[in-house]
Every structure is written in structure tokens, then in C-alpha cells.
Amino acid sequence: MSNPDFTLYVVTAILLYIIGIYGIAIRRNMVRTVIGLEIITASVNLNFLAFTLLNPKLLPLAQYFVVVSIVLGAAVASIALMLVIQAYRLYGSTDLRKLSKLKW
């Protein structure tokens, strides 16, 4: 029972996911990495909710999960931003490539 809305939501979620990955994988700025992380979280939440359209019985459970996820996402973001600030203080720039002590 494919709901056209469902497809729309899922596709959006995937798009957001890709944008988020782009942010983590390609961007050099640490802050953008955090932003990318948040976008991924948002896409995952959207995905969850999209699937409730298929099966309305899941609705309360899905909503609970999403709320918890949003809260957790906020916590993760705050800690990540704290790490970014520390890194900025240590290295004097927000360039991700400066954190390369674990190299060959």
C-alpha cells in the first residue's frame, strides 16, 4: 500500500542522509562536520516517522523513539561542539586535517 506521501518522505530522508554524509566526509571545517552529523540524525528521525505511514499501529512507538532520538541528538551536538571548541583552542583553527596524530 504505497502511499505517495510515504515515498516522498523516504526519498527526502535519503537525500538528507546523503547531504549529511557529504558534510562529514568532505568538509574540512569541524563545525560543518557537527552540522552534518545533526542532519543525519534528522534524516533518520524522518525515516522512522515515514514508516509509520505504512502501519499506523506503530505510531506511538515511533513517536517515542523519535523524541528520544531528538533529545539524544541535541546532547551529541552539544558535546561535539564542546570538542570542536577545545580543538579550536588547541590548534588555532577549525581545520579537520590538523587532528592527524593517528597517522602512519
Binding site: 562529514i24 597517522k103 602512519w104
Partner: peptide, 17 residues
């Protein structure tokens, strides 16, 4: 082969993907 361990996070993520 050792050179693949660049230590830069971006490449690790790409590898993961």
C-alpha cells in the same frame, strides 16, 4: 601501504562508507 593511514577523519569516514 602504510600511507593509507593518513589520520585525517574524512578519509576514515570515506573508507567506512
Amino acid at each position: 601501504f602504510r600511507r593509507t593511514h593518513t589520520g585525517v577523519l574524512n578519509y576514515n569516514v570515506i573508507g567506512m562508507i
